[in-house]
C-alpha cells in the first residue's frame, strides 16, 4: 500500500480552487480569440472582446473572473492500493474548499439547507464523487460550478426507440430554451445511459474534458458535432444578444443501460469553465 496524507489533498484542493477562479485553461481563451474573428454579429464580437478583457483583468488584478465563484464539485479517483492517512477524506476536501474560499476572497454561495437557506459562510460542503480505480495514485478533478448555468440543466428518461434523434432534440431544445440565461458561449455536457443519477454524473464529468475534444466513439463523436451545429444555428449568440456562437463545444459521455431505458442528462457550463486536475 502507498500511504497518502489527506492533508496533501487538502492543500491541492485549496490551490486549485483559488487558481481556477482567477485563471481559465488556455483552451477557452484560445477559443474566444479565434471566435471573435468569425462571430457574425457586431454586438456578439464586442461581447467576446469583453470576455477576453475580463480574463486579462482577472488574472492581473487577482479579481475572480465571475462573482459566482460556484459550488465546489470534486471528483476523486482513488487507486485501490492507496491508504489514506490523517484527516477523514471528506473533511480534508471540505477544509481545502473552506480555506480557498476564505483566504482567496471568493464568494460563499452555499446554504446549509435548501428551504431555510442559511449561508454556511465558508462555501462548504463540496459535492464529492468518489471512484475506486486500479493502481496507487489519486486523481483529483475539481470544478467551481456557477448556478446561472447549472440551473439550466435537465434530465429526461427517453424511450429506447427515441434513439439518436430523440437525444439530439432533447439536448438542442434544452439549450435553446435556456437562451441567454446560462451565459453563452456555453459548453454542453451530455450523459447518456446508465440510470438516472449515472446520466447526470456523466453529464457533469463531460464538462471536464479539454474543450472541443470529440468522444473517441465515432457514433457519439458525430452526434456531438451534429448537436453543436444545430445549437450554433439557433441564433442565440454570445450572451443571447444574437449571433453565430452559442456553444463552444458539446461533450458526450455514455454508459451501458437497461433494455427499457435511454436516460439523457444535460449539464451546461457558462463560458467561465473553471476546472483543474491534479494527480498525486
Amino acid at each position: 500500500m502507498r500511504e497518502v496524507s489527506t492533508l496533501l489533498i487538502k492543500e491541492k484542493i485549496k490551490k486549485m480552487f483559488i487558481e481556477m477562479n482567477h485563471e481559465l485553461g488556455n483552451d477557452v481563451e484560445a477559443f474566444l480569440n479565434k471566435t471573435r474573428e468569425i462571430e457574425e454579429s457586431p454586438i456578439g464580437r464586442e461581447v467576446l472582446e469583453n470576455l477576453l478583457d475580463n480574463l486579462a483583468i482577472a488574472k492581473e488584478k487577482q479579481i475572480p473572473i465571475c462573482q459566482d465563484t460556484g459550488m465546489a464539485v470534486v471528483f476523486l479517483q482513488i487507486g485501490q492500493e492507496v491508504a489514506l492517512t490523517d484527516m477523514f477524506i471528506e473533511e480534508a476536501v471540505n477544509q481545502g474548499v473552506r480555506e480557498a474560499y476564505q483566504e482567496g476572497y471568493l464568494r460563499k454561495s452555499v446554504v446549509k439547507e435548501p428551504l431555510e437557506r442559511v449561508n454556511t459562510k465558508d462555501n462548504t460542503p463540496a459535492v464529492i464523487h468518489y471512484e475506486i480505480v486500479p493502481g496507487n495514485r489519486i486523481k483529483i478533478s475539481a470544478m467551481a460550478k456557477g448556478f446561472g448555468s447549472e440551473n439550466m440543466g435537465k434530465i429526461k428518461m427517453l424511450n429506447p426507440s427515441d434513439g439518436k434523434e430523440g437525444i439530439v432534440k432533447f439536448v438542442v431544445d434544452t439549450v435553446s430554451d435556456a437562451g441567454p440565461n446560462p451565459c453563452p458561449p456555453v459548453i454542453v455536457g451530455v450523459g447518456v445511459g446508465g440510470t438516472m443519477e449515472k446520466a447526470a454524473i456523466l453529464s457533469k464529468k463531460a464538462l471536464l474534458r479539454p474543450l472541443g475534444e470529440r468522444n473517441p466513439n465515432q457514433t457519439y463523436g458525430e452526434i456531438e458535432k451534429d448537436i453543436l451545429g444545430r445549437i450554433n444555428a439557433s441564433g442565440i449568440g454570445p450572451q443571447g444578444f444574437g449571433g453565430s456562437c452559442t456553444a463552444m463545444a458539446v461533450h458526450m459521455e455514455y454508459y451501458p443501460t437497461h433494455i427499457a431505458g435511454l436516460p439523457v442528462a444535460v449539464n451546461i457550463n457558462c463560458h467561465v469553465a473553471r476546472h483543474r486536475e491534479s494527480v498525486i
Binding site: 475580463n54 479579481i63 473572473i65 465571475c66 456557477g146 446561472g148 441567454p180 440565461n181 451565459c183 457558462c270
Partner: peptide, 30 residues
C-alpha cells in the same frame, strides 16, 4: 441583470416606461 424576463415583467416595463439592461454575465472582474 442578465437573461430572459417573463411576459408579465415585460408588460410592467411597458406600462411604467422602464428599461431592462443586460450586463455581461461572467465579466465580473471587468
Amino acid at each position: 441583470g442578465k437573461g430572459l424576463r417573463s411576459p408579465e415583467v415585460i408588460e410592467g416595463i411597458k406600462r411604467n416606461k422602464a428599461v431592462y439592461f443586460a450586463a455581461i454575465g461572467g465579466a465580473g472582474a471587468m
